[in-house]
């Protein structure tokens, strides 16, 4: 769990905060957990990822957002590592391989790094509308491939 949070937030102290807050939420919402709607593990990670996203998107975030503070190379490496570490037997890997590289990276950086449409567009120096359309097409292809 800590690894997922650090990957999104970039700092281990913020990641620990996120995991703690997620566990507090798990504790308070335990009665809402419904096994028929997915595994406990999936539920836990969903709460954690939502917590990280809220931290990333909040106005008074401590997470660096200034362009100079963003280490593009390490972001790219994180996205590549996430893809490379997917087991070769995973359907998701096979289906991601079927996408063109720009689309694959856009989808991975949203899930893995928590990037918004705007952040992805900024990093690729591509118009927002183009990025949105590309991701939409990519998701449709993935859905068809994985179903």
């Amino acid at each position: 769990m800590l690894g997922v949070a650090r990957r999104m937030l970039g700092r281990v102290d913020l990641a620990e905060d996120a995991v703690q807050e997620a566990l507090v939420l798990v504790w308070r919402r335990a009665h809402q957990f419904d096994e028929s709607r997915g595994s406990a593990k999936g539920w836990l990670y969903t709460i954690l990822r939502n917590r990280c996203l809220t931290m990333l998107r909040s106005e008074d975030r401590e997470v660096p957002t200034e362009p100079q503070a963003i280490d593009r190379a390490s972001e790219g490496a994180l996205v590549d590592a996430a893809f490379d570490r997917l087991p070769t037997s995973a359907d998701l890997r096979g289906c991601l391989e079927g996408l063109d590289e720009a689309t694959r990276r856009a989808i991975l950086s949203s899930y893995v790094l928590g990037h918004s449409h705007g952040e992805i567009a900024g990093r690729l120096a591509t118009p927002l509308g183009t990025v949105k359309a590309r991701i939409r097409r990519g998701l449709l292809k993935l859905r068809e491939c994985l179903s």
């Binding site: 800590l2 997922v4 595994s39 570490r85 998701l92 994985l146």
Partner: peptide, 23 residues
């Protein structure tokens, strides 16, 4: 839930960090 399951393998690709002491 199915859509979450489709992307869940990506959660496994993060570094496995031990929880810090006193967590």
């Amino acid at each position: 839930a199915r859509a979450r399951d489709r992307f869940a393998p990506l959660d496994e690709t993060a570094d496995d960090l031990p929880l810090p002491e006193g967590f």
